[in-house]
Simulated assay, not measured.
Amino acid sequence: MVLPIVAYGDPVLRKKGKEIDKDYPKLDTLIENMFETMYGARGIGLAAPQVGFPIRLFLVDATPFHDDEDLTEDERAFVSDFKKVFINATILKEEGDEWAFNEGCLSIPDINEDVFRKSTITIEYYDENFKKHTDTFDGIVARIIQHEYDHIEGILFTDKLSALKKRFIKNKLTNISKGKIEPKYRMRFPLAKKKR
């Protein structure tokens, strides 16, 4: 089932997600619905807060980058089947040079900006079967994971922009929260005026 994506301005996007255990109600269904929602919105990552659940869960599918000409052959091979669920994740280390990449967010449609992030991360997490992993990722995969991880920490990519950039997009963000946009997927707007 496709869930509505929560728009910028909703308090759930600012909450630090709570850890869950394997008995979390209907977890399999939530994960399935999140993948369906992400694909329906043509996303490459989605965090539970973006569909209204303030928990430490996000998923990533980097396969759309398989055809990216900026990636090396090894990177393309790696992303070609990179699809993962991250539960109760903790980034243990961020290292390497910071590099800019033009990011967007399903909760903040029509805004894309360059964001600087470290190139390599080490992350501890559980998969959908509650098997524990500690993995190191770099490049575009690390970037996607960092973006989604920020969501479970209550952080948005727009928080990482300069004060000047934030001023430039302020009105756009207000319009998003009020629903004064035409998204290509189902959304829930926190400040939209109710129709009578």
Rank of each mutant, 00 (worst) to 15 (best):
D81L: 12
G43D: 04
D81Y: 13
L161G: 08
K180Y: 08
D150H: 06
D127R: 12
F82G: 07
G9K: 07
D159N: 15
D61N: 14
G96V: 04
K195Y: 12
I145T: 04
I140D: 00
F116T: 01
A100V: 08
N171D: 11
E182F: 07
N129F: 14
D138T: 03
F58E: 03
T174W: 10
K16V: 07
N102H: 06
E95G: 13
V141P: 00
E113T: 03
D127Q: 09
F116Y: 14
H151P: 03
S80Y: 14
F137I: 00
K84C: 05
A77N: 14
K194P: 01
D68Y: 09
A100W: 11
L3Y: 05
I123P: 08
T63G: 10
A100D: 09
R196E: 05
I140F: 06
E19Q: 07
R167G: 03
F189G: 02
T29V: 11
L191N: 15
I31H: 02
G104R: 04
E94W: 14
I152C: 04
E148S: 04
Y39G: 09
F82T: 07
A48Y: 08
A89G: 15
K184E: 10
G96L: 07
N112E: 09
D110V: 00
T122S: 13
F157P: 02
L27W: 10
G40P: 07
S177L: 08
A41D: 09
E95L: 12
I44T: 09
K16D: 00
D138Y: 03
K165T: 10
I145F: 09
I140N: 01
K18G: 01
N112L: 07
R167P: 01
D10I: 01
Q146W: 10
G17R: 01
D23V: 01
G43H: 02
K195N: 13
P25A: 09
G43L: 03
F35R: 12
T174Q: 13
